[in-house]
Nucleic acid binder design. Structure first.
Lengths: 218, 218
DNA sequence: ATTTTTTTGCTGAATATTCAGCCAACTGAA
DNA sequence: TTCAGTTGGCTGAATATTCAGCAAAAAAAT
């Protein structure tokens, strides 16, 4: 009887520990989103995870370490989403480019909670360089991929006066800026608008590859 | 002798008070940039301003009020810079558009310190809606102006399949994203790159208005 | 199988520190 | 003299971190 209930399934110690650790990271994300960086205390994180007060320092050496691991978790999740979109997309560079860009606006990784946390970390970036340096290598790989996609598209379409480096940088920045809108405004509308703006941008840059699908006369 | 030294010029009470207040706001910006939001204490702000610890609660009711006034100050400064660029630019919409966009990358308002503070506030935006709501009306005016500029340019150039709303939103987001780069990387290079990306973006959108000035072969 | 020992994830109280806000005293402009 | 602006000591509340110990799980012994 007890065995038949999934949530009461007996966990090995290692599994239980891992699950608790993950609960704490999730609770940290929720707390930062709800209360902000400054008002996120270890006690509240523990409470949010349904665990006791002293637990954080058992799983993580310090509060800072908890924050760092939380950032790493989100970073990993983001990367997985990005590369999954790349893998699952059609073979052409244009398809790939559109796929990874649209993937950025999927709710699992793009929602107000997540954005609140990302920008909270950005806000701490200058005073605590450790935080962001854990993401840069990831960003480098993604950015290189983006440049290569753009370069190929430019060659395919014989687009003149298009510099792959600058365009890739612009696309990244545009995406980043659009995610800020997700934070400052309310969720779903912003996601759709983000996709729309990005499509329109691709259209202007590479008209042969991204023909007008619909005239958004609004 | 004492009167001849500019910094020792005798100040009236009102002037002195105003100056102290401003010193505190400036010190707050510097402290948030240097230590982050969480580690910015009233004592350190006062120290940075060269004043005593108790003074903040004289000029501002609470710590939160100090933060809010700091944000308002930066917001005002930004707006002034924006509209000054608009006023001082040439008469055509294209000139105006380029002028206001380039103005965003001028060191007085765009530098790592300022960006660190902006993003720190963004990070708190979700948990403390008060902060950002003090800026939204400003953003609305600027955004409307941007839309109108884009609309006029589209009409002038008979550009097809260009939606002023979406383009204006894209330009804003792109600018926002580029400023994040100023924070995460080091200053001056990023400013130049920002301008370059933005020009390239305008070129792609409105080729008749923004002809190729130089082929950035780099 | 049963009991004993060891391991370990976890608890919650204790500690030391930090800090926002308060206030009584001080100073110099009006 | 008056009192706006300023100073810096003080306090209570909040909080990160420590730690002694609990209880369940795992391992070892019987």
């Amino acid at each position: 009887m007890t065995q038949s209930q999934p949530q009461t399934a007996p966990l090995s110690r290692a599994e239980g520990k891992q699950r608790s650790r993950q609960k704490l990271i999730t609770a940290t994300i929720n707390s930062i989103a709800k209360r902000g960086f400054a008002d996120t205390t270890l006690a509240r994180v523990a409470e949010g995870a349904g665990l006791s007060r002293g637990i954080v320092n058992f799983h993580f050496r310090t509060k800072d370490a908890l924050f760092l691991e939380t950032l790493k978790f989100m970073s990993r999740e983001y990367r997985e989403c990005w590369f999954r979109a790349l893998d699952e997309s059609g073979p052409s560079p244009a398809e790939k480019l559109e796929a990874v860009l649209m993937a950025e606006f999927e709710p699992p990784i793009s929602n107000r909670n997540r954005m609140a946390v990302w920008f909270a970390f950005y806000g701490e970036a200058k005073s605590r360089p450790t935080y962001m340096s854990s993401c840069t290598e990831l960003d480098d790989i993604i950015h290189d991929t983006l440049i290569n996609l753009c370069r190929t598209i430019i060659e395919e379409g014989d687009y003149e006066n298009r510099n792959a480096d600058i365009i890739a940088f612009g696309i990244s920045s545009l995406t980043e800026g659009l995610t800020l809108d997700i934070l400052l405004n309310t969720g779903a509308i912003s996601l759709d608008r983000g996709k729309e703006v990005l499509r329109s941008h691709l259209q202007a840059l590479f008209p042969k590859h991204f023909p007008i699908t619909r005239c958004t006369g609004n």
